[in-house]
Amino acid sequence: VLKALERTRQLDIPDEKTMPVLMKLLEEAGGNWSYIKLDNYTALVDAIYSVED
């Protein structure tokens, strides 16, 4: 979780936006981090930006 938060902080995305999206992605992935961690957490960042749209 810390590495995911560090990555999104680099992009000026607050933890308050990151955590709900991260928890949803983890739930959808059955707790499997490998998809979320791919390409420096690209799936997480993309999911956060899609929620903002």
Rank of each mutant, 00 (worst) to 15 (best):
L2T: 12
L2V: 11
L2S: 13
K3T: 08
K3N: 10
A4S: 02
A4R: 01
A4Q: 02
L5M: 02
E6K: 08
R7T: 09
R7E: 06
R7Q: 08
T8M: 13
T8G: 03
R9V: 04
R9G: 05
R9K: 05
R9S: 05
Q10W: 08
Q10T: 08
L11F: 08
L11I: 04
L11G: 04
L11Y: 06
D12K: 15
D12M: 13
D12A: 11
D12N: 15
I13C: 05
I13P: 01
P14F: 04
P14V: 07
D15R: 01
D15Q: 01
D15G: 02
E16M: 07
K17Q: 10
T18W: 03
T18M: 07
T18E: 04
T18V: 15
M19G: 03
M19W: 11
P20F: 14
V21E: 02
V21L: 05
M23D: 05
M23N: 09
M23K: 09
M23T: 09
M23Y: 09
K24L: 06
K24Q: 11
L25R: 00
L26H: 00
E27K: 13
E27W: 09
E27Y: 11
E28R: 10
E28A: 13
E28G: 08
G30P: 04
G30T: 05
G30M: 10
G30H: 14
G31A: 06
G31L: 06
G31T: 04
G31R: 04
N32T: 07
N32V: 09
N32E: 10
W33T: 01
W33P: 01
W33V: 01
W33R: 00
W33F: 06
S34W: 12
S34M: 14
S34T: 15
Y35N: 10
Y35H: 12
Y35S: 13
I36V: 08
I36M: 04
I36K: 00
K37A: 15
K37R: 13
K37F: 13
K37T: 14
L38P: 07
L38Y: 10
D39C: 08
D39A: 09
N40R: 06
N40I: 04
N40L: 06
N40W: 06
Y41H: 01
Y41T: 00
Y41D: 01
Y41M: 03
T42M: 14
T42G: 11
T42Y: 13
A43H: 10
A43G: 07
A43W: 07
A43S: 07
L44P: 00
V45F: 05
V45K: 03
V45C: 03
V45W: 04
D46R: 13
D46M: 15
D46F: 09
D46W: 09
D46I: 11
D46C: 12
A47E: 06
A47L: 06
A47F: 04
A47K: 09
I48H: 01
I48M: 06
Y49F: 13
Y49C: 11
S50E: 13
S50G: 14
S50Q: 14
S50W: 08
S50M: 11
V51E: 13
V51T: 14
V51P: 08
V51N: 12
E52A: 13
D53G: 14
D53Q: 14
D53F: 13
D53M: 15
